[in-house]
């Protein structure tokens, strides 16, 4: 991976787009890629392959770690345009993992990044954020508003 100053993006930027891509299904990725510049040709270096991640929690919520249980994970690594692209995602969507790895490689390329950010990452982040907001609004509607009955004795 080119170092960050040369690449023009920070680790946090890459963490953001990888997190967004991990949550998007193959259908959604294909849909937004349709309006984006074509992805460069790629070579698959690993996968896409399905495996497991052991999910850890903390005793008491904040204490020592413990193993809660496993989850399925799909990963893929590609090389495209001189960049190595990686994808790890919950579940078993191998097509999405390969597309996400190709996007991760392409997003490291300064020539492609702005267009892909605008046509793929931003709208996918918007979809996820709208989903979370809809859940939060439903939860907010079930928030209890206590009111205290004033007693007549005072």
């Amino acid at each position: 991976m080119p170092n960050e100053t040369d690449a023009g993006f920070a680790t946090a930027d890459r963490q953001h787009w990888m997190g967004v891509l991990a949550r998007a299904g193959a259908c959604a990725l294909r849909q937004y890629l349709a309006d984006a510049p074509a992805l460069p040709p790629h070579t698959v270096l690993r996968g896409p392959e399905v495996g497991l991640a052991m999910v850890r929690g903390r005793a008491g919520g904040g204490g020592a770690p413990f193993n809660l249980g496993e989850m399925t994970v799909t990963r893929c690594t590609v090389r495209a345009g001189g960049f190595a692209g990686h994808a790890y995602r919950a579940g078993r969507d191998t097509e999405a993992a390969e597309l996400a790895a190709r996007l991760d490689a392409a997003l490291q390329d300064p020539a492609l990044r702005p267009a892909l950010q605008a046509s793929v990452i931003a709208p996918l982040a918007g979809v996820e954020s709208a989903r979370r907001d809809a859940l939060a609004r439903r939860a907010a509607a079930t928030k209890v508003d206590f009111f205290t009955m004033a007693t007549m004795r005072s």
Partner: peptide, 23 residues
């Protein structure tokens, strides 16, 4: 089924304090 799969990683401990609570 899980015995047929390789383990890629262990997660960082999940932070339930930053949960987006539905309840």
């Amino acid at each position: 089924y899980r015995t047929t799969l390789p383990r890629f990683a262990a997660s960082l401990p999940v932070d339930t304090g930053s949960m987006r609570p539905l309840r």
